[in-house]
């Protein structure tokens, strides 16, 4: 260790944090008393007032929709940052492929593995779409389903080659989807302002409620959910593409 003082500082700091944390935890009221009024209201109101059965999605995309807008822009910006950093700055054509990942097929997949993976791709896409669009009814939603969807092109990469991965995730389309997903959220929030309400108010017709809620119940919630799903899918596909890109270009340059 080059800085011997560092460990001393760390242990003093850590001991102080641990002591303060222990003291504050001891003073906390027990979990029975921690129940907030906010939670009670949301739990009893969200089915009747928003026609939505998943309270977590209702909080995310409606009651606290403004916070999620911020989170989504964090996601957008960090994806952009990673893309900028991983952009090819010094590609030297003709540099042979270093065998960090073996060139040719991804991990030397056998035919049995390839058939199995190809068979799993369809269900993965289907499950991803299901998770996104049922966000306001059952556990799931744009954030979770988006990541599931983004793994589907990756399965194609594992089974076949990067070429197919690239053809599926045609770069410009994904970038456009990313922008549309991020923008649509803000635009839906702005619609309320044109109707003379506060930003992010749920202004769409709520659809069927009660015991026959369906995919279109919830007003703006399913729409925002879909926008977030598109955004997350595109963001993760772009990230994976950026991390895989260099390997590909080396591979293409090699004979």
């Amino acid at each position: 260790m080059r800085h011997p003082g560092r460990m001393g500082i760390f242990f003093v700091g850590a001991a102080a944090v641990a002591a303060l944390y222990a003291m504050s935890t001891m003073r906390l009221p027990g979990p029975e008393d921690l129940r907030g009024q906010y939670m009670r209201i949301i739990n009893s109101e969200c089915v009747a007032a928003r026609h939505v059965t998943d309270a977590v999605t209702a909080v995310n995309f409606d009651y606290r929709g403004f916070d999620t807008l911020g989170e989504e822009f964090i996601l957008f910006v960090s994806v952009m940052g990673a893309l900028v950093l991983l952009r090819q700055t010094d590609v030297k054509p003709g540099t042979p492929a270093p065998d960090a990942l073996s060139p040719g097929r991804a991990v030397g997949a056998s035919d049995a593995l390839r058939v199995w993976i190809l068979g799993m791709t369809g269900p993965t896409v289907l499950f991803g779409i299901y998770t996104v669009i049922h966000g306001q009814l059952t556990p799931g939603g744009g954030f979770q389903g988006g990541v599931i969807l983004a793994t589907a092109p990756l399965l194609m990469y594992l089974a076949e080659s990067f070429d197919i991965f690239r053809r599926i995730t045609s770069h410009r389309l994904v970038e456009t989807a990313e922008a549309i997903g991020a923008g649509a959220y803000g635009v839906i929030g702005l619609l309320a302002i044109f109707k003379g309400r506060e930003f992010m108010t749920n202004v769409f017709p709520l659809g069927k409620g009660g015991s026959d809620v369906n995919l279109f119940s919830g007003g703006t919630i399913p729409v925002i959910n879909l926008a977030v799903g598109i955004e997350v899918t595109a963001g993760f596909v772009l990230l994976l593409y950026a991390f895989l890109q260099e390997m590909l270009e080396r591979k293409e340059a090699a004979p």
Binding site: V56, I74, G141
Partner: peptide
């Protein structure tokens, strides 16, 4: 149980992954 706190974590988990990617 409390949905507000779950909503807090839900978005953070996905955002965390992109920040780690950065």
């Amino acid at each position: 149980v409390d949905p507000v706190i779950q909503a807090l974590m839900l978005t953070d988990i996905v955002v965390e992954a992109t920040v780690v990617a950065l």
